[in-house]
């Protein structure tokens, strides 16, 4: 189970099983989407499978998640998302009304993101062979001319931004499972990032890298950047936007919001000159009102993410292996 948590275990699986057998120069880059050239056009291509329990939660469902997830993977690569595929794996007995709800929500999300679902597939497996409904989407987009984004290009002195308050999706889904007697006013942040990305990239030339903070949250993205660029990312705890509801619930659950999944938030690495313009563009865009500079890139210590805590300490924000286990004695 830990192999899907988005942290180190997934990485181990990729390194041990997939890359040795399927590896090629494009896949080896391990970005959110592959960059391809076809007929002289630069394209981005990506795929993602969506498994979420419960299927419906405040602010969204598996349908818009499946559209937004793939749209966002294309967008943060610097592409304009265009065409998507959708594959469904349904558990025998899955209610048609629920399916209709999911698909209607996909349609709305696709319209909002300006993409079309152009091909699809459906399989039904026997009862117990799946948990209601799984969706796979793949997507193609055209690269925005002149844009080259890469986590490896982060340089000391760059600023690190997030596009909005973090952790809302993950907390919402955890609460929606109903195992806890908690009534918090949180809704998922699931949303397409393509509009915001396009506005940002057209207005600010100094954007070096974008990542959507999905599985493993902002902490995982920052670790990926630190490793890819062999730099340090130093985060200022007090600057990270977290809603009071998310903070309170995360505290009760004993988890760090930095590790909680978002489905409509991104991390941007921006060179010094572009920081203020980038912040203005993000804040001017719907959903980006609470965008913030959360830290900076430093040379040392390479490969590590550090958190300057509100008490003035410097903690290491590590890549998690699986479920967090307490390290305190």
């Amino acid at each position: 189970m830990a192999h899907g948590a988005g942290g180190k275990a997934t990485q181990t699986l990729i390194d041990a099983v997939f890359l040795p057998r399927l590896g090629n120069p494009v896949l080896d880059r391990m970005e959110d989407a592959a960059e391809l050239v076809a007929g002289g056009t630069r394209l981005a291509f990506t795929t993602d499978s969506f498994v979420v329990s419960p299927l419906f939660f405040p602010g969204g469902d598996i349908g818009d998640l499946a559209i937004n997830g793939t749209v966002n993977d294309l967008a943060v690569r610097g592409a304009t998302p265009m065409f998507l595929s959708a594959g469904f794996i349904l558990e025998e007995g899955f209610a048609v009304e629920d399916l209709e709800r999911v698909v209607a929500s996909m349609a709305r999300a696709a319209a909002a993101a300006g993409v079309q679902v152009v091909t699809g597939d459906t399989k039904v497996v026997q009862r117990g062979g799946a948990d209601g409904c799984y969706i796979n989407t793949a997507g193609i987009g055209t690269m925005i001319p002149g844009v080259r984004l890469a986590a490896a290009s982060a340089r000391p002195g760059d600023a690190v931004l997030v596009s909005g308050p973090i952790g809302e999706h993950g907390i919402t889904v955890m609460l929606a499972r109903g195992e806890l007697d908690i009534d918090a006013d949180v809704t998922s942040d699931t949303a397409p990032l393509s509009g915001m990305v396009s506005a940002l990239l057209h207005a600010v030339p100094g954007v070096r890298a974008l990542r959507d903070a999905t599985r493993g949250g902002v902490a995982t993205v920052l670790n990926e950047i630190a490793r890819a660029a062999d730099v340090s990312v130093v985060v200022d705890e007090a600057a990270v936007p977290v809603s009071p509801q998310v903070r309170g619930t995360a505290e009760l659950l004993g988890i760090d919001p930095l590790y909680v999944a978002c489905e409509g938030r991104m991390v941007a690495v921006v060179e010094p000159d572009g920081v203020q313009p980038a912040l203005e563009v993000l804040r001017a865009h719907p959903g980006g009102e609470q965008a913030a500079i959360i830290g900076r890139v430093a040379a040392d210590p390479p490969g590590l993410v550090l958190l300057n805590t509100v008490f003035g300490g410097t903690r290491i924000v590590d890549l998690l292996v699986g479920d967090p286990l307490p390290r305190i004695c």
């Binding site: 195992e179 806890l180 007697d181 009760l252 004993g254 988890i255 479920d323």
Partner: peptide
């Protein structure tokens, strides 16, 4: 009650 539920659910 929430903490007790958290423990029973085995969540974190």
């Amino acid at each position: 009650r929430q903490v007790a539920a958290l423990g029973r659910a085995g969540l974190n």
